[in-house]
Amino acid sequence: MTILFAVFLLTMLVITAIAIVRTPDLFAAVMLLGIFSLLMAANFFVLDAADVALTEAAVGAGISTVLFLGALALTAARERSSLAPPRLALVVVLITAATVVYATFDKPALGDPNAPVHQHVAPWYLEQTPVLIGIPNVVTAVLGSFRGYDTLGEVFVVFAAAIGVLFVLSGDRPLSAVFRPKDAPSTGGLKHHLIPRIVGKLLIPFILLFGFYVQFHGEYGPGGGFQAGAIIAAAVILYAVLEGEDRALVALPEPVLKGLVAGGALLYTAVGLVCMLLGGNFLEYSVLSADAVFGQQLGIILIEAGVGVAVTGVLLCIFHAFAARDNPA
């Protein structure tokens, strides 16, 4: 039964992808991309990757769609009628595909517990996480502690995106005008649309609550900083859409957002440095407390908080930067 469902999902993925590429209506393409992400998330869930499914749904289907729509509002709604499909591109793509298919011939079967990928490192993580770190979600343990350095890099990638977008979008206007052009009238949001406003406002507290739940529950179930940051940002974006960006900026003003962005990254790095000062290596949480296991848990909670804070700040900064730009006439 699951197999049938999985096959169905995979087929829909391909069909959606082809539709996205072929349609000249960019708005339709972006909406289909959202559906594509959701199907991908469902597929991840079928493959037992619960954390990844949550992230793909929140980030891919949620935030990515918002960003694309924000950019679409500022650019064009349709693709110009395309030229004849370039032959060279088709050839390159087919060669690449053939090479990758060639690699299929010897790959291990899906789900085979004796495949090399399930030996060596993975069983060690599964055995040692309860012993060394003491939290149920092994993915969070690997993400936060065993490979915490990668996650630090990831937070800085997100930080780079925020300062990159702010820098690029301040190319032709003063930096102070990137979030809110001076003398811009209040946009008012969806003031005249009663139903979305009422239903939306009912939803916002629940979304925020769910976001905080995902943040703090990341060690016990699917969740963690990235997903939580995306969900909380989505709640604020919903508020901005309903009431107008200026009201959202009153709720979370610009200095606060910038503080979140810098603060989250600094918190993560600071935890690592404190470990160094206490005698361990960088990000060695065991030294944070007399009980090594508790130290690990403390370290993971702190860095996940840093991640959640940074991601919320970044996504909101990027959203406001796009939303504040004037629509071309």
Partner: peptide, 11 residues
């Protein structure tokens, strides 16, 4: 060893 974890379990 980052995080104090030896290779190949850590970075």
């Amino acid at each position: 060893a980052m995080g104090g974890w030896p290779a190949p379990f850590g970075i």
